[in-house]
Nucleic acid binder design. Sequence first.
DNA 1: AGCGATGTTCGCCG
DNA 2: TCGGCGAACATCGC
Length: 262
Amino acid sequence: MPELPDVEVYRRVLETCALSRRIASVEVNSTKVVEGLTELELEQRLTGQRFSSALRHGKHLFAGLLNGDLLAMHFGMSGRLECLEEGESLPEYTRCSFRLEGGHRLAYVSQRQLGRIRWIEDLEDFLRSKALGPDAMDPRLDHDVFCQRVTEHRGTLKSALMDQSTLAGIGNIYSDEILFQARLSPKRKAQELTEEELARLYRSSREVLQTAVEAHADPLLMPERYLLRNRAQATNCPRCGAALQALRLGGRRGWFCPECQR
DNA sequence: AGCGATGTTCGCCG
DNA sequence: TCGGCGAACATCGC
């Protein structure tokens, strides 16, 4: 489930479970998920070390070591990070796990193996190499910077929000939600918004992401006015009751209310 | 059996 | 030049 709010939850899992604890061992159960280094190298570099920071940028999670190197985790479409207490067994599809002194284990779970674990030496270099824009929740992302980035995009609003080089962290689900709360059609051109509409978009993006993080990215804990609460059976608009409309964008299905969103 | 799924990347087209 | 599309990646569940 990994868009920005989900990954923020995993960041906190990493922080609570593993930060400052000595890594006793590493286990890799996948040939695909760890990229650019062997299981042996990963073990040698991590065993005996401690993660000293838990950072996030967009949908990327970073476990930093004291020497400045970082373990970078991305979750693809079906990944997550879990903390297990002593004696608990690893979840199905655990592709990589870290045993920590004191008994906890950190499990990187990735059913479809679309996620990646990489070793990086410089965070800024990595963000540049992925051409990531500013994190969508970064406090330094003020109204003006936000508007500038969004209106640089020449395509539709939804693709502007989902473009990781515009803003990092927003995907299919949360772009739908932000546009719904801002009452803007996903099909609008990003460059044709009025100042007032841009202000609504900015406000909604902060509000939705903040609310989602506070709800631990669990749709059931989010307000009833949120679209993503019943995305699985998305039918009617929680605001006006009109039938929701589907749209396809880059092979992805989105939903919006043709009455409320203009 | 076939299709779709909360992501990224690449090649192609206009 | 950039945006948008479809496919590929890999696997499961409906």
